[in-house]
Design a protein around this nucleic acid. Structure first.
Lengths: 110, 110
DNA sequence: CAACGCGTTCACGACTCGTTTACAGCGGCG
DNA sequence: CGCCGCTGTAAACGAGTCGTGAACGCGTTG
């Protein structure tokens, strides 16, 4: 099933490598210090590269339940992810907002 | 699982050398006085350098059984190891905590 | 028996994480 | 222009995790 893929598959985006099975995301081989949720969210985004994922879809995938109305956790986590990714990979803009819909992960930063 | 390797392989981290086969860990050739558990834990960590090892994984490898709920032995041993390593190698931070996940050994202290 | 070494458990303060809240900025629309 | 819904992000908060000195249990040694 899809779950296993999520746990064993690895993902790349430039110098970034995501290893969900090792609870790690590496840039040039050095681990970023991401929290569990941050890594889950990044993994979910990266596993659907170039696809616009709706907020509901993303939330459901990471939190395992539909978001409550006016829950802003997703935004906060996207923000924190962007901040950490931006520190490590200033040249790439990996996460793109699609207002009114959701977010999209672009491995080449475009 | 890694038993044979764990017994014969040696590991280095700066001035630290770990010799599981001799039940010894040396800094500049001088042995640290580690207890058995401390050395086992250090060896287990060092044999998976740069990898985040989950608490369960570590515990299972060193104690040979899964940890009981609220068993804090691992934390205490990590603390004692850090203390002894810190005395001998003040310039390195070898063991890193990944909260909610486990620990990571970094030979270059980063 | 007393002293010791080692592994484990306990206690409590400090820190981290996930969540919520608050507020600022932006874009569309009347 | 003012209003409104959506997003970005800093800060606050409570729950849970971790760090660590101390106490404890127990086998070993003198």
């Amino acid at each position: 099933m899809y779950e296993d893929k999520g746990r064993t598959q690895r993902y790349r985006a430039g110098r970034l490598e995501i290893r969900p099975d090792e609870h790690a995301a590496l840039v040039d081989g050095r681990p970023l210090s991401l929290t569990l949720r941050e890594l889950q969210l990044l993994t979910e985004l990266a596993s659907h590269a170039e696809r616009i994922m709706s907020r509901e879809e993303l939330y459901e995938a990471v939190w395992g339940r539909p978001p409550r109305r006016s829950d802003r956790s997703l935004d906060v986590y996207v923000s924190r992810l962007r901040s950490k990714l931006g520190d490590a990979l200033p040249e790439l803009t990996l996460i793109h907002t699609h207002t009114g819909i959701g977010y999209r992960f672009s491995p080449d930063g475009a």
